[in-house]
Simulated scan of single mutants.
Amino acid sequence: MRGSSGPSQAICAVVLIAQLDGEIIAASALARLLGVSKSYLLKRLQSLSGAGILTAMPGTFGGYRLSKSAETITVLDVLDAIEGKRRRPSLKRASQSGAGIVPNCVEGALEKAECAHRIALEQVSIRDLVKKAEAKTAT
């Protein structure tokens, strides 16, 4: 897992938590499983908690668990929690600035691609990823 991006780490963390079927896992244990530092992971876990994907359980035996079912959490939900619902920089402004970076004909194509990408991510649930992970370990 080392070297993976923050969004990838967040997806992996949510999948691992989902595999626990409601059990609580400490951030330190999750960080060890993912091969990242606890402080690095905590930033992602806090974002996921703030978005309502995870519930933080305080205390000595605290940790994290899913806030809702894995079937209702999509990959897009996780990415939006980590990255925000950010949009690519305005291509229109770039082309109007005189830089001529992106012609108008390209702008529409990129917007369509972005929309298709978001739709595809919205169709993959965390439960789908758990099933794939379990199938790989079964073979």
Rank of each mutant, 00 (worst) to 15 (best):
E23I: 04
F61R: 14
K43G: 09
V14F: 00
L54P: 03
S28P: 01
R44N: 13
I101D: 09
G84A: 06
L16W: 03
L91T: 07
Y64G: 02
K68W: 03
T72Q: 12
E114L: 13
L42K: 13
A29G: 09
L30I: 01
V124R: 07
E134C: 10
L110G: 07
I53P: 01
K131N: 11
R65V: 06
T72A: 05
L42D: 15
L33H: 02
S47N: 10
D77F: 00
V102P: 01
A109N: 06
R32G: 05
I24S: 04
L48G: 06
K68Y: 07
E111C: 03
S97C: 14
A133D: 04
A27T: 11
A120Y: 07
R88G: 12
A26M: 02
G52N: 10
A51D: 12
I11R: 02
A27K: 07
I73P: 00
A94N: 04
G3V: 00
I24E: 03
M57T: 15
G59V: 09
L41D: 07
L30G: 01
Y40F: 15
E134V: 12
R127C: 00
G52L: 11
T139W: 03
S39R: 15
A31W: 07
K136A: 15
S37M: 11
A109W: 08
K112Q: 12
G3A: 06
F61T: 09
L48C: 09
F61C: 09
C115N: 14
L20N: 08
G63P: 05
K132E: 13
C105N: 11
A29V: 11
L79C: 06
A31F: 10
L76V: 04
A18N: 05
A29D: 14
A10I: 00
Q9D: 10
D77H: 02
L91Q: 11
H117G: 12
S90M: 05
K131Y: 10
A116P: 01
G52C: 12
E23A: 12
S39I: 10
S69E: 13
